[in-house]
Simulated scan of single mutants.
Amino acid sequence: MLNWGVMSAGGIAYVFCNGMRFTDSGQILAVASRTESKMDRLVNDFGIPRQYNDYADLLTDDDIDAIYIATIHPLHAEWAIKCAEAGKHLLVEKPISMNHAEAAAMVGAARENDVFLMEAFMYRTHPQVAKVVELIQDGTIGDVRVIRSTFSYRSNFNPQSRIFNREMGGGGILDIGCYTASMTRKIAGAADNKLFLNPVEIKGNGKVGPTGVDHIAAATLKFENGIIGEIIAAVECSVGSSVFIYGTEGSITIPSPWLPSSLCRHAREPLPLDTVFPSTKIIVESYQRRETTEITVDVDRDLFTYEADTVANHIADRQAPAMSWDDTLGNMQLLEAWLAEVGVVH
């Protein structure tokens, strides 16, 4: 069983701690936060035995095996490298870093210090993704031609909020565009029986706000196997959050690609231990048969529990196929290019 330390006590840290209640692969041993009220809430709600006011204290706690870094994006690289040098295994919130160079340094630190490292794209660990890959590789929709992936929400403009503050890593591309990029690369790779594929051409555009971060961004991607990808991320308007995969013989729709089966994501208190987590659905349309089929993917735990279990199951390998180091580096390279196309530099 892994003993986890949680770095930062914000909203996503609360979600992760809630998800950890439904696994026997690990437990939350300690939390570190610079905001005492948020840390107290985690400690009280989840019975976390140790609490620290300094992130560095997690590194010197010899009982901690792995650290979940849930800080704002700009702090990821600094603390991940420090954790690796302290011999701690790592799960780092997405995006793993602010740019490709930082991500490469983090991977280098994990390799040099022989520790596990995974970027926390929790949706990649859900059985829904494995089912979509299976459908594609079985030829259910023929040859994949186009992938359209969107993630969006509407947030009122506040220059001090994490979403719109440039110094805090704001903007839609880093916050949620990373999902659309990673999913499109995953599907393009699946069509070639690979874990992922990086685009050979990227064209982007978007709207940059007064604080210098992107509010709306879109990009078209071209892959070496001829697949075209369309990715959209928006934080000032909702354009949907779904994935459509179009092939020569049919299509696949993923209505809930990013947060399937997650009751923990929006829970404001610890969920009951007898909670039943909802299944998710994949819609397959056959052009020839002119019929639509709903495929149900059943689960036995929360999305964030799958994520924690993935770390535990692959800790000895130092990386997980759900989001390998090369996959992360390829995704950061795409995000960096997309940001440049839109006119944002971090």
Rank of each mutant, 00 (worst) to 15 (best):
A188F: 03
S238R: 11
N165E: 02
E167M: 09
P270T: 10
L221T: 01
V235L: 09
P255F: 01
I176C: 01
K207G: 03
L259Q: 04
N158V: 04
T253P: 00
I254W: 03
T211M: 13
P260S: 08
S155T: 08
G169R: 04
S155V: 11
T248M: 11
N205T: 14
S155F: 08
G189M: 07
P210C: 07
G170S: 08
E230H: 15
A181Y: 03
H215M: 05
H266D: 15
R265T: 12
V208Y: 06
Y179W: 05
N198S: 12
G229E: 05
I231P: 03
L174R: 12
H215E: 10
S161A: 11
E249V: 03
I232C: 12
E269H: 12
L273W: 02
M183A: 12
C264T: 10
V200F: 07
A217K: 07
S256G: 00
N165Q: 03
I252M: 12
A190Y: 07
P210W: 06
V276Y: 07
E269F: 08
S251P: 08
T275F: 05
E249G: 09
G226I: 09
G172Q: 09
I163P: 00
P210D: 11
T275C: 02
K194Q: 12
A190P: 06
G189V: 09
T275N: 01
G229P: 10
I252W: 13
E167T: 10
S182G: 01
E201Y: 10
W258D: 01
G172L: 04
A267I: 10
F196R: 00
H266T: 15
V200M: 13
S242H: 13
G170F: 01
I227Q: 07
A190L: 07
I227C: 06
T220H: 08
F196N: 01
A219M: 08
I254R: 00
Y246K: 10
M183R: 03
G247W: 04
G247Q: 08
I245C: 07
Q160R: 14
K194T: 00
S242N: 11
E167G: 08
C237E: 14
A267V: 11
W258H: 12
E224M: 00
H215T: 01
Q160Y: 09
Q160L: 12
K194N: 05
L271A: 05
C178F: 01
R268M: 13
G229D: 06
N156F: 09
R162W: 10
H215L: 09
G169W: 06
T220D: 13
I252D: 06
I187W: 10
N158C: 06
Y179P: 00
A190Q: 07
P272T: 08
S238D: 15
T275D: 01
K186L: 15
I228A: 12
S262Y: 00
A267M: 09
T180S: 10
S238Y: 13
T184K: 00
D214S: 14
A181W: 03
V239M: 13
G169I: 04
G189C: 10
F196H: 02
A218T: 15
E269R: 15
L271D: 02
I202W: 04
L271V: 06
A188I: 09
E167H: 13
I202A: 08
Q160N: 13
I163V: 15
